[in-house]
Design a protein around this nucleic acid. Structure first.
Lengths: 342, 342
DNA sequence: TTGAAAGCGTTACCAC
DNA sequence: GTGGTAACGCTTTCAA
C-alpha cells in the first residue's frame, strides 16, 4: 500500500494539516517540524495521490488559457482538437480550458489575447510566441504573477516560459531533404518557396534542408529561394514567374503556407507530374494535393499533440505540482505519403 | 458546477447510496425508483466524476495483466515501455499493471500466460492473440468471468475481445509499396522476404503491397516471395540463394523479422548501396541498418502506443465504466528515414 | 504554530 | 429496497 499523508502524520506525531503544510511549503510551520516531516516523506518515498489532490482541488476552479493565431489558419484545427480533448479529459480533475483565437502573426494581437486571458483570471497560459521583446516581457510578467506560460509550435528561448512543445524545425528540414533525395534519386534543381525570411521556423527548415543535401545529396542544387508571405496569390505569381524564367527547375520545396497557389503555378507552367513537390503540415488542402498526386510527400509535426500536451503538462503542474522533466518536448516529424493518409 | 450524485439524490428524494446503485445497475433498487433516477441523471446531463470514482476505487485494488511474447523479440521493448508508463500514470487512480513475458508464438505458452494472470487475480487482460480456437475460447471464458480482454498488435475478430489496438497491416503494406514506388521511380524487380505464410499480419503486408503496385506502379514486379520464420540464419541462407540464382532482383521488401540476416545476404551477394530495401518496425537493429544506409526506410506502427493505449482503455472501463467508442483503434503508420530517426 | 474537522464525489457496509 | 455513515487522500478553515 502506498504511503499517505496520514501515515506520515502518524509517524511524525503531528496532524495531517501540518504534514500538508510542510509538504507544500506553505507558511506557518515550525522549521524543525517541517524538516522532520520532509525527511520522513522522502524516506518513505511518499508520492502524493493524484485523485485525492484532484478532488480537493475541485473546490476552487483552475483555468488554463490558450491563445492561438488560428483564424484563417488551418494548421491550428488539430491543435485546437488536441487542446479541447485534453480539456475534457481533465475536467473531472478540476481544470477548465479556454481558447482565445485571433488572426495573423501580430505582436499587438498576441499581447491583447494574453491580456484578455489574464483578465478572465486564468491560472496558466499557452501561446505560439512571436520572437519579440514585448512578448518576452509579458511572459516574464506572467511568470512573476505565478501564471506559468508554455510555448507551443514555436519557441522563445530567452523568456521564462516553462517549456516548449513542438517541432525541431532544423530536423524537419533535414527530413524533407532526405525524402527529396530518395524521390529524386539525388539529382534535382529545386525551387524553395518560403513564407517569410523573418520567420525563424521557416528559415530553419531551409537551413536544415540545405545542410542535408550538402552532406548527403550533392547532386541536388537550389535554383532559387522565394518568399510569398503565406499568401496564395503572391505564391502563384512569384512561382510562375520563376518557373517560366528558369526551365531547369525540376522540383519544389515549400516550407510554409500558400501551397495551393504555388502548386497551381507549377501546373500552369506546363510541368507535369514528374515534378516532385514536398511541403509541410497535413491540413485539409495539403492532403488533397497529396491525394491527387500534385504533392509527393508532406512532412507533419503532430499538431494534435501540440494542443494536447501543453494542457496535460499544465494540469500536472497546477494540480499535482509536477514540473515537466524536459524544457523541450519535441513532437515527432511525421512523413505522409498518399498511402498512409486518410 | 457539474451535476453530482448528491444533486440527483436531493431531486429524487432518495439517498446517495440508492442513486449509486441505480446508476451502476446494481441489484436491489425498486425499478420505478431506478427509472426515475436514471431519467433525472440523463436530464441533468450527469457525468460521474473520475477523481471521486478513482478515490473510492482505491480501497480495492484493480489489476491489469498483459501477456507478451516479448522474450527475444525486440519489437516489444517499446510496447512494454508504453504499458509501464500507463501503469505509473494510473497507479494513483487505483490500478496496477503486471506484465507476463513468454517466448515465441505458441498457443500453449499463450494459454499458460493467460491462466497464470488469471490465477494472480487480474481484473483485465491484454494479449497479442494467436489466431486459434483455443485462444478464442479462453477469451470468451474470461469475458464470461467478467474479465475484459484487449487484443493488441494482432486482432482476433471472432472472439469477445473488447477491442483491437494496432496497425492496419493491409494499409502498412500499401504504405511500404508507396515508398517503394517513390524510391525506385516505379521500376523494380523486388524480392519479398516474409516471416511465415501462416501469419495473418505478414500476409496482409504482402497483399497490400501487391495491390498497390498493381494499381499505381505496374513497373514494379515481384520476383519471388520467400519465408524465413523470423530466423536470421534461415533468412541469410534463403535470400543469398535466390539473389545468386536471380541477378535481375534489384530490391527487397521484408515484412517480418530476420532483417539482419536478409540484409547481410544482400551485402554478400555483391549488390551495392543502390539496392533499395524497406522493412518494418523501428527496433534497435533496424535503426542501425537504416542509419548506415543498408535499409532505405522503415515502416513503423507506434509500438509504444500499443502498450499504452490498452491500459488506458481498460482503466476507463474498470474505474470509470466507459467502453471505448471504437472496436478498432488503429495506430499510425509511421515512415522512418535516417533523418527523422534518433 | 498546530490540531480538529469538514468537505471534494463516489462507493461499501450495516442497519432497518 | 433504502438510508445513513464511514471511507478513499488531500486541502482548507476555524479555533486554540
Amino acid at each position: 500500500m502506498a504511503v499517505t499523508i496520514k501515515d506520515i502524520a502518524a509517524i511524525a506525531n503531528v496532524s495531517r494539516g501540518t504534514v500538508d503544510r510542510a509538504l507544500n511549503n506553505r507558511a506557518g510551520v515550525n522549521p524543525d517540524v517541517a524538516k522532520n516531516i520532509l525527511k520522513i516523506a522522502s524516506d518513505l518515498g511518499y508520492r502524493p495521490n493524484k485523485a485525492g489532490k484532484a478532488l480537493a482541488a475541485r473546490k476552487k476552479s483552475t483555468v488554463i488559457g490558450m491563445a492561438l493565431p488560428s483564424i484563417n489558419n488551418p494548421f491550428f484545427t488539430d491543435v485546437i482538437s488536441g487542446a479541447m480533448r485534453a480539456g475534457q479529459e481533465f475536467a473531472d480533475y478540476g481544470i477548465k480550458v479556454i481558447i482565445k483565437e485571433y488572426k495573423g502573426f501580430s505582436v499587438q494581437r498576441q499581447l491583447e489575447a494574453m491580456e484578455a486571458l489574464e483578465r478572465e483570471g486564468v491560472n496558466a497560459v499557452c501561446i505560439v510566441p512571436i520572437d519579440d521583446d514585448l512578448i518576452r516581457a509579458k511572459i516574464d510578467e506572467l511568470y512573476d504573477k505565478n501564471i506559468p506560460v508554455i510555448a507551443l509550435n514555436s519557441d522563445l528561448p530567452d523568456s521564462r516560459r516553462v517549456c516548449f512543445v513542438g517541432n525541431d524545425y532544423e530536423k524537419s528540414g533535414r527530413t524533407a531533404a532526405g525524402m527529396f533525395g530518395l524521390i529524386t534519386g539525388g539529382v534535382a534543381n529545386v525551387l524553395i518557396v518560403t513564407g517569410s525570411i523573418k520567420m525563424l521556423g521557416h528559415n530553419q527548415r531551409i537551413h536544415g534542408f540545405g545542410q542535408l543535401i550538402k552532406e548527403k545529396y550533392p547532386g541536388i542544387t537550389i535554383a532559387d529561394v522565394i518568399a510569398c508571405d503565406d499568401d496564395d496569390e503572391t505564391a502563384h505569381k512569384n512561382v510562375f514567374e520563376v518557373l517560366t524564367k528558369n526551365p531547369t527547375i525540376d522540383s519544389m520545396y515549400i516550407t510554409a503556407g500558400a501551397q495551393t497557389g504555388a502548386v497551381r503555378a507549377v501546373r500552369e507552367s506546363g510541368r507535369g507530374k514528374s515534378f516532385p513537390i514536398i511541403c509541410f503540415d497535413d491540413t485539409k488542402t495539403n492532403k488533397e494535393l497529396l491525394k491527387n498526386g500534385e504533392v509527393r510527400a508532406i512532412i507533419c509535426q503532430e499538431a494534435y499533440r501540440q494542443g494536447y500536451e501543453p494542457i496535460k503538462i499544465l494540469f500536472e503542474m497546477l494540480i499535482n505540482a509536477r514540473k515537466p522533466k524536459n524544457e523541450h518536448i519535441y513532437t515527432d516529424i511525421v512523413i505522409k505519403i498518399p498511402e498512409n493518409t486518410d
